[in-house]
Design a protein around this nucleic acid. Structure first.
Length: 424
RNA sequence: GUGAUUGUAGCUCAGCUGGUUAGAGCGCAGGAUUGUGAUUCCUGAGGUCGCGGGUUCGACCCCCGUCAGUCACCCCA
C-alpha cells in the first residue's frame, strides 16, 4: 500500500519550523493591535458568487485557479482564493459599518489551483489588514505602515515598497483607451502573451517580462500622467505622508494588480531574494468593492502579506538566529527519583514561564544532556539515588557548566518556587 | 495550463558503458567514561532506490506511464 502524502502544493509545518510561524503570527497580531486593528475570522469557504463578483469574473484567479465544488445541498462553494471578499461580506452581513469605520486584520489560509513554484503554493497563508470607511490617503499610509513595521521588526531592508495609482472610474477608462491606442498599431510585434492581454487587460502589458515588449512598454503613456485631478491629489498626498513618516518607496508606474477591485493606490513590497514570486506583500485601495458586493458606497484599503514568502525572506536574510536557551531539562535517574520528579516537574510547569522538558525514560545521563541540548534548555535538574539519599537536587547551569546542590524538602510547589528563584 | 530539471537511509548526497550482499557524511541509539552535554574512538539500528508497467539472463541505471519536488513562464501572496 502506498502511503498517502499531502496534496500537491501544500505542506506540513512541524517543529521547529512551526515555532517561527507562531512567532511571526504573534508579531502580526501585536503590530495590528498597536494600529487599532481587530481580528476578524471568516469561513475558509464561501459562496462561489462572492469571489466572482468581488475578485472579478475575468481575472485568472476566478477563471482558472479556484477550488470550486458543489456541496450536498447543491450550492456552488469555493475555497477562498483571497481574504478580502470574505471580510467585506462579513462586514456587510453584520452591518458593522453602522458603527463607523472598521479596521480589521486576519491571518489564515487561502487556496489557488496553480502549478507550485518557489513561493507559490496551492494552500498558502496570509496576514492581511483592511480599513473600511476612510476615503482619505491617511488610511492608505496607515495600512502601508503596518506592513513596513513588520518588515522593520525583522530588519528586512531588502523589500522595497513600490507604489502606483491605477486611477478610478473617472480616469481609468480613458487611460485604458490611451493604452489601446498606443499598443494596437504594434499589435503584431508584441509577444503572444501581450497580444492576448491587449483585448483582455491591456494594463497587464505594462508589467510584461518579455524583452520583445520592452520598447513599446517604455514608450507607453503612464497612468500617473493620466490621473484625474482627484486621483492625482490623492496620490500626491500619499507620497507626502510616506515622506513624512520616513518610509522609503519608489513610484513604479508599471505595477498593476491582478484583482479587478483596486482603485487609486496600489502597492507592493518586492524582495529580490526569493525568486520569481517576489511580491511579499501586495495591496491597495478598493473604493468600489463594498458597493459591488451589495453594500453602501464605502471606501476601503488593505493588503495581503504572504507568510510563506515573508518567512523565506527572513530565512535568506537573517538565517538561523538561535533563540536563547531557556527552561529546564528534568533528569530522573532511576524509578524512585523519577517518581519524586513527577510532582516537581508538574509544579515547575506552573511556576515557571519557561518550558520544562523531561524524557521519563531509563537512559544514561549523557543521553539526557543530549536531549537538553536538542531542547535548547538552559538548566538541567538532576535527581538520582544519591541526591534522594542526601535530600538534595542538583541544578546544573548548562551554559556555565556549574552544578549547585539545593535542598529537596517540602511540597513540590515549594521546591519549584525555589528552583524558579534560583534561576532568575 | 506551457517548458526545463530532479526523485537512492531522518537530512545532504555518491553509486562506473545495466552485473549479483546499495555506500558515505551528518543525525539517531549503545559503549569507551557502572552519574555530567565539546572533541575523539568503537559498535549498531535504519532502504520495497517515489510508484506502476516494459525491455533484459540480469534494472538504482534503459524505455513508457504516473505521482511528487525544484526552477522559469503565465499569474500572484
Amino acid at each position: 500500500m502506498t502511503p498517502i502524502s499531502a496534496p500537491r502544493g501544500t505542506q506540513d509545518i512541524s517543529p521547529p519550523e512551526s515555532a517561527r510561524w507562531n512567532r511571526f503570527e504573534s508579531d502580526c497580531r501585536d503590530i495590528a493591535r498597536r494600529f487599532g486593528y481587530g481580528d476578524i475570522r471568516t469561513p475558509i469557504f464561501e459562496a462561489t458568487e462572492l469571489f466572482e463578483r468581488g475578485v472579478g469574473e475575468t481575472t485568472d484567479i476566478v477563471e482558472k485557479e479556484m477550488y470550486t465544488f458543489v456541496d450536498k445541498g447543491g450550492r456552488r462553494m469555493t475555497l477562498r482564493p483571497e481574504l478580502t471578499a470574505g471580510a467585506v461580506r462579513a462586514v456587510l452581513q453584520h452591518n458593522l459599518l453602522a458603527q463607523g469605520a472598521q479596521r480589521l486584520y486576519y491571518i489564515g489560509p487561502f487556496f489557488r489551483y496553480e502549478r507550485p513554484q518557489a513561493g507559490r503554493y496551492r494552500q498558502a497563508h496570509q496576514f492581511g489588514v483592511e480599513c473600511f470607511g476612510v476615503a482619505g490617503p491617511e488610511a492608505d499610509v496607515e495600512v502601508i505602515q503596518i506592513a513596513a513595521a513588520l518588515l522593520a521588526r525583522y530588519r528586512i531592508s531588502d523589500a522595497v515598497l513600490n507604489i502606483n495609482s491605477v486611477g478610478d472610474a473617472n480616469c481609468r477608462p480613458q487611460y485604458r483607451e490611451a493604452l489601446l491606442a498606443h499598443f494596437r498599431p504594434h499589435a503584431a510585434e508584441l509577444s503572444p502573451d501581450s497580444q492576448r492581454r491587449l483585448e483582455r487587460n491591456p494594463l497587464r502589458i505594462l508589467d510584461s517580462k518579455d524583452p520583445q515588449d520592452l520598447p513599446f512598454v517604455a514608450s507607453a503613456p503612464t497612468m500617473i500622467e493620466s490621473l484625474c485631478d482627484e486621483c492625482a491629489a490623492h496620490f500626491a498626498a500619499l507620497r507626502g505622508y510616506l515622506d513624512a513618516l520616513g518610509i522609503p518607496y519608489v513610484v513604479n508606474p508599471r505595477i498593476v494588480r491582478g484583482l479587478d477591485y483596486y482603485t487609486r493606490t496600489v502597492f507592493e513590497f518586492v524582495s529580490s531574494v526569493i525568486g520569481a514570486q517576489s511580491t511579499v506583500c501586495g495591496g491597495g485601495r478598493y473604493d468600489g468593492l463594498v458597493e459591488e458586493l451589495g453594500g453602501p458606497p464605502t471606501p476601503g484599503v488593505g493588503f495581503g502579506l504572504g507568510i510563506e514568502r515573508f518567512l523565506m525572506v527572513v530565512e535568506k536574510l537573517a538565517g538561523g538566529d538561535a533563540p536563547p536557551r531557556a527552561g529546564f531539562q528534568a533528569v530522573g535517574l532511576g524509578a524512585a527519583a523519577r517518581a519524586r520528579l513527577v510532582a516537581i516537574v508538574g509544579a515547575l510547569r506552573t511556576a515557571s514561564p519557561h518550558p520544562t522538558f523531561a524524557e521519563w525514560t531509563d537512559r544514561k545521563l549523557t543521553a539526557h544532556f543530549k536531549a537538553a541540548d536538542r531542547n535548547n534548555a538552559r538548566w538541567a535538574l538532576i535527581l538520582g539515588d544519591d541526591e534522594l539519599a542526601a535530600g538534595q537536587i542538583v541544578l546544573r547551569d548548562l551554559l556555565s557548566r556549574e552544578d549547585r546542590r539545593l535542598p529537596l524538602a517540602g511540597p513540590a510547589a515549594e521546591v519549584a518556587a525555589m528552583l524558579v528563584e534560583a534561576t532568575t
